[in-house]
Design a protein around this nucleic acid. Structure first.
Length: 975
RNA sequence: GGGUCGUUAGCUCAGCUGGUAGAGCGCUUCGUUUACACCGAAGAUGUCGGGGGUUCGAAUCCCUCACGACCCACCA
């Protein structure tokens, strides 16, 4: 049956993938040689909510290449797939779905019912990305597909793995070792999802904002002399003040101030340190007084040099408050609305005043106090901010400056006229509100401003487990590529902060800690155990679940059955390579390193290959909001999975962003077509069904291509071994297109069509073998076309996916004689074609070739390859002559001089120009060579082979130069 | 503010441990020769960001400047 002219990817891909799966081709250990080494890769588990994007396509293509390559080489290979339960993302998706369907919401359903809904959703919609990965051609062992919530309470049938057991066991063990603790800390609070999140889940974004300046009046109307001096102590400014000036970007938090801090060395405020000042907001009759304290934190050169301390709503203030035993008043609820609980303001303020005056207090008591004035209670924090600013300004306690004060910036704001007070000096004074960019923290999923919040959370004491993770990379036990990411890894781990692992969500691994009535903790793998520990006291379980990354941190062991001592764990752990994007080095890579060492005392993987981000053709990050997203599935539909994979591979140079354009993919789709047609040519000429033996041909071309094949095999193996995926892809592209298609197929035509029986048979066998080698070597990158051709071109014992990867070497198969000869032939053909084209000899015209001199090697090369040269260079005949007739175009070859007598065809001036141009280039080269060789220092200090090479080069170039000059000479005689 | 990376042909990028610059796309001219027009043949284009230095020799190593990107960070 005749083959089509192109590969029908859309038709073939599904069929081929099914065949692979049916054959169990991807199963762990499939195609392993007896006693083989193992090779294992853990897939970075995509979120169950995820769908395949370009980053996944890239990431998984690279993994698949390594996996297929090892599997073909006979390793005992495992590519472990699975999904992550993705706490926040999944809970969000299900809640949205419930809302869209008009079903009862999460809170109405209650925890248990809601979780049922999540599992339901997971069962029906959680497999999307698996099918998408299959379309890419990912050869994961799907029979082992894992899920980070498998085996959790409430998990339905089919989700009965033991990942949950692993997570719980790790928590309990770490708790017992003192590596996990609970405490009231200031954490990043996401008011949208109403949960704590870790530092890593916060994105700091610069936005235009304001900084207000307010006056905190001194208690009892006290005054002091405020003096500013320059470095020499000269007085710049001096006035009597009854207030201290405070700058803030968050006026609403003033309600929770516990103190005002100045730097101990700041002489401006020295007279008032230790005194009390008044928070200029809230009901007048209950104005709170707070102490002015000293702390190293305030920078005297920034703003007024005085900082308000709100320990419960700012990370810096929190530290200051801890140092100074300043009460931390929490102002907001879980939605970041101003608190609306507890006693009325007057009562709370009274107690706060006692504390400010020195009364003893506890953290719990302070946290219970609601210092939000009654009329602000329940307001959104931004609403409250507006009100606070208004009230203070109206009262005349904003710092006033002239309208033209540079600090005001360009942004106009309506000055609020003071009802009383204000600055008496000039009516045109306005409140000092600086417009400036402010760094604000946002939740990476909610996109809502994060609120620092004082809450009880669970933490991993990372400082205690970070050591081995650092040491492993320092010592090279685990390597991280590229180097720059290794530095990033170190930098982060060397400055590691405690990891907040509790989330106020429902979808996740619930923390295995129970409390009795007195608040004592019982950490155990089950409620029964906890109860036993508590001596039968009534217990209630901690409501929180664990950060998703806590469980994905256990991915390498959890997917292999730990804590059970499984065969797989013994065989495939530690894994060999982790391939991942730089964006999750901290989230995932670093945590896996820490956790695996903490739990099983071993590295999770030997190599980490960090790849770049896929961007659009303009270098922009692909994002839905920008609308520049390239959907890998659409691209696969249009160009085929092989083209998409090859493109990503060819562009996978380490360390840089990868800008993807459809045009590029089309180019590699053309490459698959090229390969297809080479195979088609082979098939049409009976060059199929290689018997897997390396051919031992006699014809030079055949010897040559066998050697070229061996060379590229070595290049590909070396490249893949070094994770230089692009080098492998480019070498194969150059070989298949540039060597096999451009030359070998062309050379073979006269042999196959007109050669004698033996030559034909030999060429068929060689070509069949070469094409097979192309398919084998390309298979890891382009699995579909290659598998299809493999099946088409012969009856095989095994599918290509399990074909034996070759081990022949260049030193075995390269015939230096054949190599030289073919290079000579190719150079001659190229020279003839070039000369013809430049003087416009009609492309189809066969012309005679004259030869004035030709050495033995050249003669032999000609004789061995005459038919091929004649065909490809369009030569009619070769004759030896003593002198060239007038009007020739000359062609130089190593060891020979050729010419084409085409006097009636050529334009003398054009030919002259051609020769001169060539000569010009040559001369430049000669100049460089002579310059170097005439330099005694070069000859003395350069390595011998370099000098030798230069010498040889010089001889060759000079020979060429001579021929060109002779040709010009003849031309001159003609003209 | 700290860190990392980048600046090479019109575009997108390769160039490992220094030996004198490459690929793909695009462009120009020619071509339908029995694998392929998703093709073939022949071409053109670079003071390798600027400036110093080390070296016989630097796109490649060092210093410096400029521009760009990304990551981290508490300046109220």
């Amino acid at each position: 049956m005749a083959m089509d002219k192109i590969f029908n990817a859309a038709e073939a891909e599904g069929r081929i993938y099914d065949a692979w799966e049916k054959a169990g081709a991807f199963k762990a250990g499939a195609n392993a040689k007896p006693g083989a080494e193992t090779f294992s890769i853990m897939i970075p588990p995509p979120n169950v909510t995820g769908s395949l994007h370009m980053g996944h396509a890239f990431n998984n293509t690279l993994q698949d290449i390594l996996v297929r390559w090892h599997r073909m080489r006979g390793f005992d290979t495992l590519w472990q797939p699975g999904q992550d339960h993705a706490g926040i993302a999944t809970q969000m998706v299900v809640e949205r779905k419930l809302a869209a369907e008009g079903q009862p919401g999460r809170r109405e359903l209650g925890r248990e019912k809601f979780l049922e809904k999540v599992w339901e959703w997971k069962t029906h919609s959680g497999g999307t990305i698996i099918n998408q990965l299959k379309r890419l051609g990912a050869s994961c062992d799907w029979s082992r597909n894992a899920f980070t919530m498998s085996g959790a309470p409430g998990a339905p049938e089919g989700e009965d793995g033991n990942f949950h057991d692993a997570v719980i066991k790790v928590f309990v063990d770490m708790y017992n070792k003192g590596l996990i603790y609970r405490g009231k800390r200031l954490v990043n609070w996401d008011p949208h999802f109403e949960t704590a999140i870790s530092d890593l889940e916060v994105e700091n974004v610069e936005n235009p904002g304001h900084m207000w300046h307010f006056k905190y009046p001194l208690a009892g109307g006290e005054t002091y002399t405020y003096v500013e001096r320059d470095e020499d102590g000269t007085v710049l400014f001096e006035e009597e003040r009854d207030y201290i000036s405070i700058a803030t970007t968050r006026p609403e938090t003033m309600l929770g101030d516990g103190a005002v801090a100045v730097h101990p060395s700041d002489e401006r405020y020295a007279p008032i340190v230790g005194k009390l000042c008044e928070i200029p907001v809230g009901p007048k009759e209950h104005r709170r007084l707070i102490p002015i304290i000293t702390d190293e934190y305030p920078d005297p050169d920034f703003g007024s040099g005085a900082v308000k301390i709100t320990g419960a709503h700012d990370f810096n203030d929190y530290e200051v408050a801890k140092r100074g035993n300043i009460p931390m008043y929490r102002l907001m609820d879980t939605k970041a609305h101003m608190r609306d609980d507890g006693a009325p303001y007057a009562e709370a303020a009274k107690r706060a005043q006692e504390i400010a005056n020195g009364a003893d207090f506890t953290v719990e008591e302070v946290d219970a106090l609601n210092l939000v004035p009654d009329h602000l209670r329940g307001l959104d924090r931004f609403e409250a901010r507006k009100k606070v600013v208004e009230e203070i300004t109206h009262e005349g306690l904003a710092v006033m400056v002239p309208e033209n004060d540079p600090r005001l910036g360009k942004a106009a704001h309506t000055p609020v006229a003071p009802e009383e007070g204000g600055d008496p000096r000039d009516e045109s004074y306005v409140p000092l509100v600086e417009s400036k960019p402010i760094m604000q923290p946002f939740g990476d999923r909610s996109k809502v401003v994060i609120e620092p919040m004082l809450t009880d959370q669970w933490f991993v004491d990372t400082s205690k487990i970070v050591g081995p993770a650092l040491e492993a990379v320092r010592s090279g036990e685990t390597t991280i590529m590229p180097e720059s990411d290794r530095k990033v890894y170190f930098h982060w781990l060397e400055n590691i902060e405690p990891w907040c692992i509790s989330r106020q969500l429902w979808w996740g691994h619930q923390i295995p800690v129970w409390y009795d009535e007195d608040g004592n903790q019982y950490c155990a793998a089950s409620e029964e155990e906890a109860r036993a520990m508590a001596g039968g006291k009534p217990l209630s379980r901690d409501e929180d679940v664990l950060d998703t990354w806590f469980s994905s941190g256990l991915w390498p062991i959890g997917t292999l059955g730990w804590p059970e001592d499984t065969e797989e764990l013994k065989k495939y752990f530690p894994t060999d390579v982790l391939i991942t994007g730089f964006d999750i080095i901290f989230f995932w890579v670093a945590r896996m390193m820490m956790m695996q060492y903490a739990v099983v005392g071993q590295k999770p993987f030997s190599h980490v290959y960090v790849h770049a981000l896929v961007r659009d053709e303009k270098g922009k990050k692909m994002s839905k909001s920008l609308g520049n997203v390239l959907d890998p599935l659409e691209l696969i539909d249009e160009y085929g999975a092989d083209a998409v994979r090859f493109t990503l591979t060819a562009m996978a140079a380490m360390g840089r962003d990868l800008k993807l354009s459809p045009q590029r993919i089309a180019g590699y789709r053309n490459f698959t077509t090229k390969l297809w047609n080479a195979a088609r040519f082979a098939e049409m000429n009976g060059a199929t069904g290689s018997d897997r033996q390396v051919p031992q041909p006699t014809a030079t071309v055949n010897k040559w291509i066998v050697g070229e094949t061996a060379k590229v095999r070595e290049v590909v193996d070396d490249a893949l071994a070094g994770f230089r995926f692009n080098d492998a892809a480019n070498a194969l592209y150059a070989f298949v297109w540039g060597k096999v298609c451009d030359w070998y197929v062309e050379f073979s035509k006269p042999l196959l069509l007109d050669g004698d029986e033996a030559t034909r048979a030999e060429t068929q066998a060689t070509m069949a073998w070469v094409i097979d080698q192309c398919l084998i070597l390309l298979h890891p990158i382009m699995p579909y076309v290659t598998e299809e051709l493999w099946g088409t071109l012969g009856a095989r014992e095994k599918m290509l996916v399990h074909a034996d990867w070759p081990t022949y070497t260049a030193s075995d198969l390269v015939d230096p004689q054949a190599d030289r000869e073919m290079n000579w032939v190719i150079a001659l053909i190229e020279s003839v074609r070039s000369a013809r084209a430049q003087v416009h000899v009609p492309a189809g015209l066969y012309v005679p070739l004259l030869c004035t001199e030709l050495d033995d090697a050249g003669q032999q090369a000609w004789d061995n390859n005459e038919v091929m040269i004649k065909r490809l260079a369009r030569i009619e005949s070769l004759s030896r002559v003593d002198a060239l007739p007038k009007g020739c175009i000359t062609v130089a070859a190593e060891g020979g001089s050729f010419a084409m007598p085409v006097a009636d065809l050529i334009d003398v001036a054009e030919e002259k120009a051609r020769l001169e141009k060539t000569l010009g280039k040559l001369e430049k080269e000669l100049g460089g060579l002579r310059g170097r060789l005439n330099n005694p220092k070069f000859v003395a200090s350069a390595p011998e082979d370099v000098v030798e090479e230069a010498r040889e080069n010089l001889v060759l170039r000079e020979e060429e130069e001579g021929k060109l000059r002779a040709a010009l000479q003849r031309l001159a005689e003609l003209g």
